[in-house]
Design a protein around this nucleic acid. Structure first.
Lengths: 153, 153
DNA sequence: CTATCTAGGACTGGAATTGTCTGATTTAGG
DNA sequence: CCTAAATCAGACAATTCCAGTCCTAGATAG
């Protein structure tokens, strides 16, 4: 299925929303949740996580909320997904330590690791700023900087 | 987490195993399961699925088993994963009909769909035959035909 | 006719995801 | 000072999904 979790989905949507705000003002979790019809408390959790990861700056209290910690062009989709869903592993074989229960028998580990890295590179080439641009205009599929991502497999 | 299921994992391993058999003889699910220490009944199910998808040819009865239906070079990782795990969707938003519950509010659908297609292209560029080659020899990271996969995002 | 194999359905335990609830802390503004 | 609006944080319930098992039926070579 190779599926993103809904949380990561929500997180990306929220970041895009924040990127669209031109003034430097913070937006509350509630505002964002209402804009996208996302469960407010769940989104609140996600934003907290993103803040802890350093992608967002939070401000408590009345009129508080969240804002991007950097330019939208400097935040990659990979960072967001990793912050929310944890390390990106395409197979259960690939762990942080690089070893799996079937170390000796699992023979496809290496090839899949390359695929893993490729997807990582792919997501690293996509920035929150790109999501905003493609909303309207659609200047011809230039989602990523050069228009093409070359991935060594 | 963007994770492959274990079933898909097992499926790829099994296909690689079958690709390594030079004679045209069929191998039983039990044999493959033992070679990789995979639960036999689970692998049996997976192989049945792959056979139904047309990637394998099955032969029941004594000395029966499974064999690749085509050359290992003509079976892509994408086909295998799709056959086992179903359609590849990076987000829950993207469905077969292209619509999600939040059709109007979910604004990152289009960009993510391109990522989705990119991953699909990536997996389509990897063949079972490639997995066999990389086991030994390792001729310099040429897992995919040209050595590089260019993906338009 | 029997051992070996595929085919396929039902089912269970566990884990992960999703979502909710509750309480504590911060803070702007009257 | 006090209140309302926020974030922060942990615990918890509901649900879904995955992994694995079991059982039975059908095919087939020897």
């Amino acid at each position: 299925m190779l599926r993103l979790t809904k949380k990561a989905d929500y997180g990306l949507m929220a970041l895009k929303y924040l990127a669209e705000q031109t003034d430097g003002g913070a937006r509350s979790a509630k505002d964002i949740a209402e804009a996208y019809h996302i469960p407010p408390q769940l989104l609140a959790k996600i934003l907290q996580t993103l803040a802890k990861a350093g992608l967002l700056v939070s401000h408590a209290g009345t009129n508080g909320g969240y804002a991007l910690s950097r330019s939208a062009k400097e935040i990659t989709a990979f960072e967001v997904i990793r912050a929310i869903d944890g390390p990106l592993f395409i197979t259960s074989c690939i762990t942080i330590h690089g070893a799996c229960d079937l170390t000796s028998t699992c023979t496809i580990k290496e090839p899949l690791r390359k695929v893993n890295d490729s997807i990582k590179d792919l997501l690293n080439g996509i920035h929150i700023g790109d999501l905003v641009e493609t909303s309207e205009g659609e200047t011809g599929g230039s989602l990523v900087g050069g228009g093409l991502v070359s991935i060594a497999v």
